[in-house]
Amino acid sequence: MSELSQIVQFLCTGVTIGSIYAMVGMGFTMIYNATGIINFAQGEFVMLGGLIMVSLTSSAHIPMPLGFFITVICVMLIGALFERCAIYPLKKPSVLTLIIITLAGSIIAKGVAMLVWGKQTYSLPHFSGDTPLIIAGAAILPQTLWILGILCCVVYGLSLFFNRTMLGKAMRACAVNPIAASLIGINVRYMVLLSFALSAALGAVAGICITPMLLMEFDRGALLGLKGFCAAALGGLGHSGGAVVAGLLIGIFESFGSGYLSSAYKDAIALIVLLAVLLLRPSGLFGSVEQNKLKDF
């Protein structure tokens, strides 16, 4: 394999996994903006997305597109349920309490998933076959293109939602100033519910997309969640465009790192990149004092 084709190959792998981190990172961002908490259960949404999709399509033989849709709805409902049962009943909780609750949620989700799906590893068929396309000597799976396309749709869709619709603008208003938002008649708790549902949906999409390539099992969520969190933090917490760029960057670093150094370091790379950047720029790549003032999705 020539030098160039190897680079293209690493780049593709990196962008693929990076897109997943980007989606998970956006999920973190959304909940962080609405509530100020880091939702440690974020990775479990990814795992649930993958496994529910497996059950629907492989066991129940529902066609892929319909399965995709149902899975996203299911995980959204789980996210909403989590908010209503665990977050909503609390009166004036501290951020620390909330974070611990999300940790508990993540442990429970993992336990339930183990009971339902057992400990084995599941896979899904690729969306449109797994015959690689050869580009510049590199073998690129169609799934990579699917994932990139879906990421683009998600980013575009969210930006339309947050910039064009009343509901999206109301969510942004709540993120910046919940009290002022409630004074114009926005139900802040409802917006929090919505942010959990949306970010669960993002996680589910990520899970469905990545399962054909990386497989899925009950305890995969934590690591994917951690990488997604790195993306969110690296992008400057609360900045979802930043999370996307940072997610892709982390994916690319990881892929080149495991290619040129050793794949044993793969999981450490995200953290190393995060630490290095935060040392130099404590507010993340895209966060800044100015940006915080203009905090945005």
Binding site: K169, A173, V176, I179, A180
Partner: peptide, 14 residues
């Protein structure tokens, strides 16, 4: 208590 990242029109709509 305005919302800095939203535009003037956004505020009026909201």
């Amino acid at each position: 208590q305005i919302f800095p990242p939203l535009t003037v029109i956004d505020h009026l709509q909201l």
